[in-house]
């Protein structure tokens, strides 16, 4: 299967047909990938006989993590999604890559970064439902020359309670129960996000959300944002000087706010207030 997401083109192969069918359904509204993809991912049996006996999926691609644990075949879609993320995280050099969600309104982008569990994906999906254009829930691609954000609207990976909170409209992948991160379900970005996947947006605000705390907001100094974003970037060190220039420019030009929130409704109200 070949698919294009924003500037990146993927080819995914599999020893089994079921994960490919699930991927085709998930990416049905995406443009087809290029004949020469940026990244190739393969889902393979951990041992030849494991294709039939208690099937267990290992991922193979241009970029690998040797300690990546195999997943059961029922979670092959998750394995494929993780593998695609991994290729981008380790292999992408054309932009500064931030582990962040991003949404856009009126040509201005809101970038949300934080630890796993901070609520980036959930917030991005909620804002998408309220009419914001989703740029991505996993990676923000910062242009090395002009600082704009390139959309990378992969299916949004929602976990546990967030799945029910966003249930309803939209194209969803299958529910993956009992994964290492609990129950996971992918929500396909809406038509606005997919139609605009080649349209860049300038970042206007950086947000450091934290889920599960009493409501609080704090202006974050640019120097603190710089340090946190070097840690949140998967390719900052590899990019060298262009990465340094892009990141210093971002933190100097864009205000940063830390937001603690107890639940999704509070977070949306706080974003509305901060955004103005």
């Amino acid at each position: 299967m070949k698919v294009r997401v924003g500037p990146a083109s993927f080819r995914v192969g599999s020893a089994w047909s079921q994960p490919l069918a699930q991927l085709r359904a998930l990416y049905a509204d995406y443009p087809p990938g290029d004949s020469v993809p940026d990244f190739t991912v393969r889902l393979e049996p951990t041992r030849p006989w494991r294709r039939w006996v208690r099937p267990s999926v290992a991922i193979a691609g241009d970029y690998m993590l040797p300690e990546a644990a195999p997943l059961p075949l029922a979670h092959a879609l998750l394995a494929a999604e993780m593998a695609m993320n991994l290729q981008v995280a380790l292999g992408w050099r054309r932009h500064l890559l931030l582990h962040a969600a991003a949404v856009e309104k009126d040509g201005r982008a809101l970038v949300m970064t934080g630890e796993s569990g901070a609520g980036k994906s959930t917030l991005a999906a909620m804002l998408m439902r309220r009419g914001w254009r989703l740029l991505g829930d996993e990676f923000a691609l910062v242009d090395l020359h002009n600082g704009s954000l390139h959309p990378f609207p992969r299916p949004i990976s929602l976990k546990n309670d967030s799945i029910a909170a966003l249930a309803g409209e939209g194209r969803w992948g299958p529910e993956l129960v009992g994964t290492p991160k609990g129950t996971i379900r992918h929500l396909v970005p809406d038509a606005l996000a997919l139609a605009g996947m080649n349209r860049q947006a300038m970042p206007a605000m950086l947000l450091f959300p934290r889920y599960g705390f009493a409501p609080a907001t704090r202006a974050v100094p640019a120097s603190e944002a710089f340090v946190r974003l070097t840690a949140a970037s998967t390719n900052y060190a590899n990019l060298g000087e262009p990465g340094f220039r892009a990141l210093t420019r971002l933190v100097r030009e864009v205000p940063t706010v830390a937001v603690d929130y107890p639940d999704g409704a509070s977070a949306l109200a706080m974003v509305d207030e901060i955004w103005g």
Binding site: P221, S223, F226, E241, F244, R245, T248, R252
Partner: peptide, 15 residues
Amino acid sequence: LLAEPIDAFTAVYHR
């Protein structure tokens, strides 16, 4: 060296 002031700090990239 490439130096960029960022509030009270100076970010320095050592080529």
